[in-house]
Design a protein around this nucleic acid. Structure first.
Lengths: 340, 340
DNA sequence: GCAACAATTTAAAGCGCTTTGGTTAATTAG
DNA sequence: CTAATTAACCAAAGCGCTTTAAATTGTTGC
């Protein structure tokens, strides 16, 4: 059923029916009621394409997931999107998902913009000197970045966690516990989050007068396997690290496996601190959680990012918002004083 | 730039420009070339909403992710979608993502259908006697189910793996190794995949003359935590199981943790077989993978499901396709003969 | 040189909605 | 009782495309 048919059923013009449904004032309460109940009765909902064409608004938001060459899909994106989608459905927006392989990103974003199937975009996984920021600015497409590019000083909307502070605190906790050989199992340092976490780590080492040992650094996709491989290699060193800082729960699962297969005990022999995005499949909860962690809900970040973007779309002339979330340091079972 | 502006630039009618771009035959090769290069030059791409309105096709596919009450988002869906999205972009389709909480599903699907923003739907996570099948049939919206509902005998398109056979083989491998107390850590049995896996498991037990012990069954979200809790409880039994069958990699990570904290060794003391969806963040690869597994790529299933759906949309009168994929049994390090 | 036909091109309608600029009916003011 | 005002409704244009039906141009045959 379309608007024309519905209005014929009611013996009203399309104009009046449309206005009644969209809560315009120039319709009597009586007819509005009549129209609305008829719409429910006939299960009428406006055709999204037609509404979009008429209003020039797609009522949809695009999420572009970067897929790196190794075809790895980060579960963190999924959780973020789950958070954002709640906001969208609450506001009558749809969510358009696009995967963009590294290298094709420029054309993917241009295509999205010119096809006009979305009113705004959420940018995932920002990298240092990310060309997408200026591209989207040029395309005049509202966007919010999950993360931020500290190398880019222009104005853009972002939501991020205080990665530097979080990893500073985590590292400091370890140095306070007496650890001096602390490994960092990090995401790829082209990603801004990983770079900032490393800086926080280095700051804390410096504070404790511990020279940076590049041997103890790993960067790469934070998969279980990579966590295992990195930690296994590190534990094979003669002077192996007594503490690990791991940028994700998934990587930490591999680190835990490596610790166990080396015959060591997590918590007593080797301390581990993770960053906990509160993924629903990987709860690190309980009174004393398994892992000591810097914790921040990525799902909530998704909700907030979506709200920010919708606000920008509703009021494009307002100053661009940004938001820095602090992570909470949660003490779990995986940390302890350095054994001597 | 829109079609009108582009055609004015070229001194041609909108009709000819449209036809040139859409490769209609009634345009001379010369003008076609001229039009196409102008389109590239001016970065013109048709407005998706207008095209959709004119053709009655949205050129978009909807994926509806069921979110259960515990707000858990299954990473397997994400991997499936990543596979599907390749097919979509190859065919010029977009992907619309919707999260539907249990209970709201009926209205979510109705809304999608009446808004007409998609040409078809992929149904995730089918349950036994799933009402969504008859609903979508009634709404006349093309759909493909990832999984199937064996309780529903009507015609519908699906792609599934042979869950029953896979878990039969896995269980048989364990009984052949001498195991008699085999636990099954399964997904919720309202889900058809879990139900069929359990049947395969029971078939193999029966073949080995092992009575079913309900104490050894667990069903629930296959999170790391649930895997840990279930396995910990089971290992606390006086006559604890010597083998675990785990329906997902994530659950198996928790099982592995439980085995370790019980002071046991996976592979020698306790055998474990998992179902391996080949998630990109959870590789179970290598010459001898960590886990013995029934393996089937969920990403490939996504690609195939998308192709099936697009075929249905292109030719709605053809018989509805379905596809049963076999899982491969891969021997890894996590299984061994029962110790006596 | 003209009819017949094919090859190109175009004008205009239509997809289903919103919105501008009316019109009509009811109410109030003078 | 008429004019002015307001409340309620409607006709039609327009969003940017596709597609039908018609027009134009080019080509061929006799």
């Amino acid at each position: 059923m379309n608007l024309k048919q519905l209005s014929q059923q009611l013996g009203l013009s399309q104009t009046t029916v449309s206005r009644a449904l969209n809560n315009y004032p120039e319709v009597s309460e009586q007819t509005r009621e009549r129209v609305k109940s008829a719409a429910i009765k006939f299960n009428y909902r406006p055709n999204a394409r037609a509404t979009g064409l008429a209003t020039g608004r797609a009522r949809a938001i695009g999420h572009v997931i970067p897929m790196n060459s190794t075809e790895v899909l980060n579960p963190i994106f999924a959780e973020f999107i789950a958070g954002a989608s709640r906001t969208y459905s609450k506001h009558g927006y749809e969510l358009l998902l696009t995967m963009a392989a590294t290298g094709t990103e420029d054309s993917v974003y241009r295509q999205i913009a010119s096809r006009q199937s979305v009113d705004g975009i959420i940018v995932h996984g920002p990298r240092i000197d990310d060309p997408r920021i200026s591209l989207l600015q040029e395309l005049r497409l509202p966007f919010v970045i999950h993360g931020r590019d500290t190398a880019n000083t222009s104005e853009y909307a972002w939501i991020d966690i205080n990665n530097r502070r979080a990893f500073f605190q985590a590292t400091k906790l370890l140095t306070d516990l007496g650890h001096r050989d602390i490994a960092l199992i990090n995401g790829e340092e082209t990603m801004t989050f990983a770079s900032r976490r490393r800086i926080g780590y280095e700051d804390a080492l410096q504070l404790a007068n511990i020279p940076l040992n590049r041997q103890l650094l790993f960067e790469g996709d934070l998969t279980e396997e990579n966590g295992y491989l990195a930690a296994s290699a590190l534990l094979g060193l003669t002077k192996y690290p007594t503490a690990f800082l791991v940028s994700s729960y998934m990587g930490a699962l591999g680190v835990r496996r490596a610790i166990h297969s080396a015959g060591l005990n997590m918590g007593s022999d080797i301390s581990v601190i993770i960053h906990d995005d509160e993924l629903s499949y990987f709860h690190n909860s309980g009174d004393i959680p398994q892992f000591t962690a810097t914790r921040s809900s990525v799902r909530e970040a998704g909700t907030l990012a979506a709200e920010m973007l919708l606000a920008i779309i509703d009021n494009p002339s307002a100053p661009l918002p940004n938001r820095l979330l602090e992570a909470n340091l949660i003490i779990g079972e995986s940390t302890g004083p350095k054994k001597r």
